[in-house]
């Protein structure tokens, strides 16, 4: 459905995308996950035919994003990361405007947005600028869907939205997927990876890996321990004293330590025994989540680049 082949994009001296290659299958909910500045928006704008790739090719349904932009603009629904609706128009007026701009009517495609619109129904007459963040995103999604596209490109739809609305939003995306839409979505939140069929991890314009969330966790080749204690702020500098083969980083209230060898735990314990202060520290073997995978891949990638 979507094929990216060594797509690069440079802005002056900055390389925003560096040989990005992956494929999205028809009917898939595909996530592009990466921190701010990873190149997600650039990638989505290239797919939305708004930017030209400096090198490489990208096609959607065999239509090239450079040459066939006219066709693609009809079959893609694009929701930019920035809130792109008119804040001084009401919910209804925004929807009506986009419907007519895309040469259709709200009623014709109402079935597709019915789900989403039930949330918005009470605010029909409210100006879009006065909606909450979650409602704004739902309205923007409705507007992107209004011409019944075959593929949806959603650039960071859940950024700046509260957790409840985020969960609702992912629910809506699952429903759309059931109706046959192919959905590409980007997010900086690693914990949202689980909602996607497959994910691509993006960092500094490079793809670190493409896999299912589960496959990614299974591929994780390190042993990972989580350390919990009363003063995690002090724990981190302590554990940083471990040799270079240990990877130490904070994750929420925990400090995580990853190591290739199984007996790495002995070294950690030895370090903790140096002082009574650390008696209360609890160590447990943990299952890696997407963030752990991201960090592991990131460091592998750095080492590769180093060599």
């Amino acid at each position: 459905m979507v094929i990216l082949n060594r797509v690069s994009k440079t802005f002056g001296k900055i390389k925003a995308l560096d040989e990005v290659t992956f494929q999205v299958n028809e009917g898939e909910l595909f996530g592009v996950i990466g921190p701010d500045g990873a190149g997600k928006t650039t990638l989505f704008r290239i797919l939305a035919t708004l930017l030209l790739p400096t090198e490489g090719h990208a096609t959607i349904k065999k239509h090239d994003v450079v040459q066939d932009f006219g066709v693609l603009r009809k079959i893609t629904g694009y929701m930019p990361g920035q809130f792109s609706l008119y804040p001084d128009l009401t919910v209804e007026e925004n929807l009506e405007f986009y419907a007519r701009v895309f040469r259709t009517r709200v009623e014709d495609n109402y079935s597709l947005i019915r789900d989403i619109f039930t949330y918005l129904e009470p605010f029909r007459k409210r100006r879009a600028g006065n909606l909450s963040g979650g409602m704004k995103q739902k309205l923007a999604l409705s507007c992107a869907l209004i011409h019944r596209p075959e593929i949806l490109l959603l650039d960071e739809p859940t950024t700046g939205v509260d957790p409840v609305s985020r969960a609702e939003f992912w629910g809506l995306l699952h429903n759309l997927q059931k109706q046959g839409l192919t959905i590409l979505v980007s997010t900086p939140y690693m914990d949202e990876a689980a909602h996607c069929n497959r994910i691509a991890l993006l960092r500094q314009g490079r793809i670190l890996g493409v896999n299912t969330p589960k496959g990614l966790q299974e591929e994780y080749s390190l042993h990972l321990w989580g350390l919990k204690g009363e003063r995690p702020a002090l724990l981190l500098p302590l554990l940083r004293q471990l040799p270079a083969e240990f990877r130490v980083y904070a994750a929420g209230q925990e400090v995580r330590v990853a190591c290739r060898e199984r007996n790495g735990i002995e070294k950690i314990k030895a370090l903790l025994e140096t002082s009574e202060k650390w008696d209360h520290i609890q160590i447990s073997l943990v299952q890696p989540d997407v963030e752990d995978c991201f960090i592991a891949l990131m460091q592998e990638n750095n080492e590769l680049q180093y060599k």
Partner: peptide, 13 residues
């Protein structure tokens, strides 16, 4: 500036 141009551009307008 507001980004609505992005959507107008991808529209058939």
């Amino acid at each position: 500036e507001s980004g609505s141009m992005e959507v107008l551009l991808v529209s058939p307008l």
